Simulated scan of single mutants.
Amino acid sequence: MTVRVMLISPAMNAALREARFDGDSPLDRSGRERARAAAGAVPETGLVLSGPSGRCRETAEALGLAARTEPALGGWDLADWAGRRLDEVAAAEPAGVAAWLGNPSAAPHGGESLCDLVTRTGAWLDSLGGPDAPGASFLAVAEAAVVRAAVVHGLRLPTEAFWRLDVAPLTLTGLSGRSGRWNVGLGRPLTPPPAG
């Protein structure tokens, strides 16, 4: 049977606007308002999950979702770079940033490599399509990096394809299929239903 997994990227916050690593700061006013406005556009589903970041949990709440926190949906662990801006890290550690961008196994920040992120996300995704979950439906609010990693894993793309995938705030990416064979619907905006 087919498993449906719908991933919603969280709403905007100041850290995302500033291109900071590990942007787990609260949603900004605009992000909160857009998430509340989009609540009616969220598809109905079975189990509702949220990544553990405050940004994911706050987005789920603003969307009106009673989501269970799922640790496997944690954002990309960038350890020493957490909270810093990309331009700041690139100026201070140009070789580290070059390695991070050019080698999926590199982890110059001391956290997870890109390969580790894709493997962790893929293991979670494939666990949903196992024999114990036939015909199941899941919706999860997950950081953009987790959504990108799920697409890379689901389509069996080269890990480097991660850098070519853009996931805008408050978009829905759907995966359907089962472990080892996934189809992907990318980046549908969560827009409020028409008035009237």
Rank of each mutant, 00 (worst) to 15 (best):
D28L: 00
V184M: 03
A37E: 14
T121I: 11
M6A: 15
G130C: 04
H109F: 08
R84V: 00
V48F: 03
V167Y: 00
S53H: 10
E18N: 14
A136L: 08
S176T: 15
P194N: 08
E58R: 13
A161Q: 10
G31W: 02
G54K: 07
E143H: 14
A60D: 07
G75I: 01
E160H: 09
P26E: 13
W76I: 08
P158A: 14
T171A: 07
L114H: 02
V3C: 15
F21A: 10
D126T: 06
A67I: 04
A35E: 06
T2P: 13
L155D: 07
R178W: 10
P169H: 09
T121H: 09
V151N: 00
E58N: 10
A136G: 14
M1G: 15
W76S: 06
P169I: 01
L186Y: 02
V184P: 02
P192Q: 12
M6N: 12
V118D: 03
E33S: 02
T191E: 15
P43Y: 06
V97Y: 04
A82S: 15
W76L: 07
R148S: 03
P71K: 11
A92E: 14
A11D: 03
E61P: 01
G96S: 09
A140Q: 04
A41V: 09
V89M: 12
T171E: 07
D132E: 14
